[in-house]
Design a protein around this nucleic acid. Sequence first.
DNA 1: CTGTTAGCGCGTTCAC
DNA 2: GTGAACGCGCTAACAG
Lengths: 339, 339
Amino acid sequence: MSGEGREQGNRALLADVARLSGVSEITVSRVVRNKGPIAPATRERVLRAVAETGYVPNRLAGALASSGSALVGVVLPSVSNIVFADVLRGIHAALAPSGHQPVVGVTDYDRDEEERVVRSLLAWQPAAMILAGFEHTAATRAMLTAGRLRVAEIMDIDTAPIDVAVGLSHRRAGRDIARHLIGRGYRRFAYVGHDWDRDHRARLRYDGLVGTLAEGGLALVGERRIEGPSSTLAGREMLAALMASGARPDVVVFSNDDMAVGGYFHCLAAGLTPRRDIALFGFNGLDIAAALPLRLSTVRTNRMLIGERAAAALVASAERPDAREIIDTGYVLEAGETA
Amino acid sequence: MSGEGREQGNRALLADVARLSGVSEITVSRVVRNKGPIAPATRERVLRAVAETGYVPNRLAGALASSGSALVGVVLPSVSNIVFADVLRGIHAALAPSGHQPVVGVTDYDRDEEERVVRSLLAWQPAAMILAGFEHTAATRAMLTAGRLRVAEIMDIDTAPIDVAVGLSHRRAGRDIARHLIGRGYRRFAYVGHDWDRDHRARLRYDGLVGTLAEGGLALVGERRIEGPSSTLAGREMLAALMASGARPDVVVFSNDDMAVGGYFHCLAAGLTPRRDIALFGFNGLDIAAALPLRLSTVRTNRMLIGERAAAALVASAERPDAREIIDTGYVLEAGETA
DNA sequence: CTGTTAGCGCGTTCAC
DNA sequence: GTGAACGCGCTAACAG
């Protein structure tokens, strides 16, 4: 019933395949990894045995022996946020061809939690690490700087990275939004946003926006920020509150599309027509923004590309280069129909 | 400059900590893992040395030695879908306390890709595996059945699982939706949906819906399905097409909230008032559904709970029990304001 | 309570 | 083109 071979339940080992194909373990290892010269006949015999035994290499052992795992640590503030989900898709896509596996840690926008997550991911000896943002605890930075491992800090290129930065300039995007809207004739700007502690990039955009307004002799006529994450509901409520306060903006810039869509909903409920009665501007270019009755005016960011470029840059070379690298994935201002 | 101790760059090893604290490696190992009896004084000495060296255990080596990793494979069709992102959050939350790490693979709704992903995750010797859905290739099923590893199939409890199933009965949900709407007086039902190949659960809901309608002597007066994933835009376009076809439904049941929100947008653009002119019903209970000017009528599913319960069930026992387990996380029908 | 011995399964040297 | 020996860093099983 259970001969000398492996039956289901006992995983096949390199040694099993070797025995079955009449070669040494190392030869099997070479065939499996496509490494080193192998006689075609040998290769075929080995592959047959692999199929027969259902051999699956133990990557744990492989990584330990070669002291280099194919794991890539990915540290994100959240996965429920479509923005980071898109980034993750990009990372996946770029990592798959080279056989790398992303291992994801979630920080919930908490720097201390990030430190714990980084420490725990480091224990898997990852080949590289991808983190969203640049705001780390001193300990996190030390862990990341110490080793020779590659590190990508993504989303943002407004800060100097440890190794490589991939993303877009949020400050510049904020300025472009201001210029665009001023160019369209808007003068009475209001801002509706969410928690800057959790989302430093929203703050950078705000700074760019307000800075450029100031250069044009303008200032916000109203402003509302919620102490919490962005959401459609928050956007709706904050715009309602802003309008109730008596502010009479001709355009409202939201911290992102989620908030802006909420603002759109407030308009619908309050009988206001976007643009005609009040202009709305978002950020991110989510799918839903394009499906609204009036296409939302927004800035489309290339989230998936950010993930792809980051992963590609890290996989390209195992050694951290001397010079830091900055990869700008850009953005596109979508004029839309709400501003 | 670089004494006998480890400087930054060279990771500290168990041996380094052992030397520094004057005990054996295994003692350090025990302290670090909180395993076995240790004299308080020894523990303290070791912990000091750990802190001093910045020792981070190599989990790769640990897992190999104990032939049992703390990795949990998670196979999802997509991470950009908020539904699975929520599930992933739940998994994270339930896994963190026990030190388990999820390793995520994405299949893009492709069974062959799922097979590749499962094979590749298995190579990391995971302690358990969580997969969305029950539709696997024969090879995938074989790999999953063979080992002694724990397997959770989630989202759905309408099919017999390999080991444990966690989710809700989509067929039953479909029936409840039909009963609820019939009870509210609707008679002319239409359906707007997306790809059943990619989303088998949508099909189950449809079956429940149509089956219950039939029992009441009713049939769909119109139906539209897009060959592709669900999206707000698709929902909008499909409802537009349905109405253009001349169907005159009094209620439209959508395959999910994304589609239903799109339908809502079509109504806005076409000057129709939801419920008064045409009733809309979704599925999932996304945040956005509650932020619409009229709260979307829908079924709220406990996605995060699904992830939590699945992870908890797997961590609870390393050995697969004899009996299959079915965990029903239920759902709540939200009457809302659109139906 | 602590230490010794012997691997975990594979990949890196070198040889041949 | 192929193989033998050794070690990756840690932990299970025993002793003591």
